[in-house]
Amino acid sequence: GATAVSEWTEYKTADGKTLYYNNRTLESTWEKPQELK
């Protein structure tokens, strides 16, 4: 079967924080998503 690919993209901001963006739900979060833990 196909492996579930994470929908989350990780961005590094200018101040060194990490922003997570979900390509499916168009949601963005500063918290690390469950799927990435």
Rank of each mutant, 00 (worst) to 15 (best):
G1N: 13
G1E: 11
G1P: 13
G1A: 14
G1I: 14
G1V: 12
A2D: 12
A2L: 13
A2V: 12
A2G: 13
A2R: 08
A2Q: 12
T3Q: 12
T3I: 12
T3F: 12
T3S: 14
T3D: 12
A4K: 09
A4M: 14
V5R: 08
V5F: 14
V5Q: 13
V5T: 14
S6R: 08
S6H: 10
S6V: 08
S6I: 08
E7V: 07
E7A: 07
E7R: 03
E7D: 12
W8P: 01
W8K: 00
W8V: 01
W8L: 00
T9R: 09
T9K: 06
T9G: 04
T9S: 10
T9A: 06
E10M: 10
E10V: 13
E10P: 04
E10C: 15
E10Q: 09
Y11Q: 06
Y11N: 03
Y11E: 03
Y11D: 01
Y11V: 13
Y11H: 07
Y11A: 03
Y11I: 15
K12R: 13
K12M: 10
K12T: 13
T13H: 05
T13I: 05
T13W: 06
T13L: 11
T13V: 04
A14G: 07
A14P: 13
A14H: 10
D15Q: 05
D15N: 10
D15S: 10
D15F: 05
G16N: 03
G16W: 01
G16R: 01
G16H: 03
G16D: 03
G16T: 00
K17F: 05
K17S: 06
K17R: 15
K17E: 06
K17P: 01
T18I: 15
T18Y: 07
T18S: 07
L19H: 05
L19T: 04
L19N: 03
Y20F: 05
Y20W: 15
Y20I: 00
Y20N: 00
Y20G: 00
Y20V: 00
Y20R: 00
Y21S: 03
Y21C: 12
N22D: 02
N22Q: 01
N22W: 02
N22F: 01
N22T: 01
N23H: 13
N23E: 08
N23D: 04
N23G: 05
N23M: 09
N23W: 14
R24E: 06
R24Q: 09
R24F: 12
R24G: 04
T25K: 01
T25R: 01
T25G: 01
T25E: 02
T25F: 02
T25S: 03
L26Y: 13
L26I: 02
L26Q: 15
L26P: 01
L26N: 15
L26M: 15
E27N: 04
E27L: 06
E27H: 04
E27C: 15
E27A: 05
E27Y: 04
E27G: 03
E27T: 06
S28K: 11
S28Q: 10
S28W: 15
S28Y: 15
S28P: 03
S28H: 12
T29A: 05
T29Q: 10
T29I: 05
W30V: 06
W30I: 05
W30S: 10
W30L: 09
W30P: 07
W30Y: 15
E31D: 11
E31M: 06
K32R: 11
K32A: 06
K32N: 05
K32T: 09
K32P: 08
P33T: 02
P33E: 01
Q34S: 12
Q34K: 10
Q34P: 15
Q34M: 12
Q34F: 12
Q34R: 08
E35K: 04
L36I: 08
L36R: 04
L36E: 06
K37M: 15
K37Y: 14
K37R: 14
K37H: 12
K37V: 14
